[in-house]
């Protein structure tokens, strides 16, 4: 089996697709970490919220694209509420309190999902445009998964363009690097924080809606993806886009190939990877601040 080239190609595509999902989640989380110094354990819950909102939108409108549009918007709006109610006050409260408040949010969201959508796993169909399979590099692969890979790459390209080539990107990088100095230069850091937080939430919601047709929509999907996402962020280094990319690819490939090549070890591998990185490079592979 492992000698077959198509096996490797299919698994590499699987890994890439998982990596892109991690990327959509971790990029928001890492910039929120880097810019706001905020530990948001509820990021996974926002991803799940995106999937649930997507489910409702897709069922009501009868089209996948309704989910694709509604999930990021609704989740970003919830993010606005969270920001005004909680996040702003918790900014300077230290990691312990942030972990606890957002852990409390995980609990709240969990029961909100159970009350709103029930305990049964839900799902909705992929768009007709991307249903079926297509041929790539000599292997047959589900088109929708290729769409996820493409979407991840598109978001990646857009974000890196914004961050490196535009003024707002320069402001964000300055804020990550030294927020006090950025504020001294006349930048309204608070407003940049708010904007970044909303974009991060929208991307989490988008990831939820995109993942829903592949994975099923369950109340614990947020907690399940939270830990790998946090690992991606910490391995990559807080606050850096490069770190989020590297971490996502690393975890995506290790997890996918680990589970097909060494199923017993797979679950331990990513934790061992995290522990190893933290011991050798305590600030992650590509920390935003040198």
């Amino acid at each position: 089996m492992t000698a077959d080239v198509s096996f490797w190609i299919v698994q590499a595509l699987n890994a890439l697709q998982l990596s892109m999902l991690f990327f959509l989640l971790s990029v928001g989380l890492t910039v929120i970490f880097g810019l706001l110094h905020f530990v948001n354990l509820a990021h996974g819950a926002l991803y799940a919220l995106g999937a649930f909102v997507g489910f409702t939108a897709a069922t009501l409108a009868g089209s996948y694209w309704a989910a694709f549009a509604a999930a990021p918007i609704v989740v970003a709006l919830v993010g606005v509420l969270l920001y005004w109610a909680l996040i702003r006050r918790m900014r300077s409260a230290g990691p312990m309190n942030q972990v606890l408040v957002t852990f409390g949010l995980i609990f709240v969201f969990l029961d909100v999902f159970r009350i709103g959508w029930g305990d049964i796993a839900l799902g909705f169909a992929e768009p007709e445009l991307f249903s079926g399979r297509s041929e790539l590099l000599g292997v047959v692969y589900p088109t929708y998964r290729l769409f996820i890979i493409g979407l991840g790459l598109a978001v990646l390209a857009a974000l890196s363009l914004v961050l490196t080539r535009t003024q707002i990107g320069a402001i964000i990088r300055a804020g990550v690097d030294n927020d006090a100095m950025a504020a001294c230069m006349g930048i309204n850091v608070e407003r940049v924080f708010f904007l970044v937080f909303c974009v991060g939430c929208a991307l989490a919601g988008l990831a939820g809606a995109v993942a829903a047709p592949v994975l099923s929509v369950t109340t614990d999907m947020g907690t399940a993806i939270l830990i790998p996402t946090l690992i991606v962020v910490v391995i990559g280094g807080l606050g850096s886009l490069k770190g989020a990319i590297a971490g996502s690819l690393l975890i995506g490939f290790v997890q996918t190939f680990g589970s097909v090549l060494a199923p017993q070890l797979a679950a331990i591998l990513i934790y061992a990877l995290l522990a190893g990185v933290l011991i050798l490079k305590p600030a992650g592979l590509f920390p935003a601040r040198g």
Binding site: L86, R89, M90, A93, N97, L100, V101, F103, G104, L105, I106, F107, V108, L110, D111, V112, R114, I115
Partner: peptide
């Protein structure tokens, strides 16, 4: 839904 109550109590306690 004890998760909801415990979550809210926790948030209130920290705030």
């Amino acid at each position: 839904h004890w998760h909801l109550v415990v979550g809210l109590v926790l948030i209130a306690a920290v705030l």
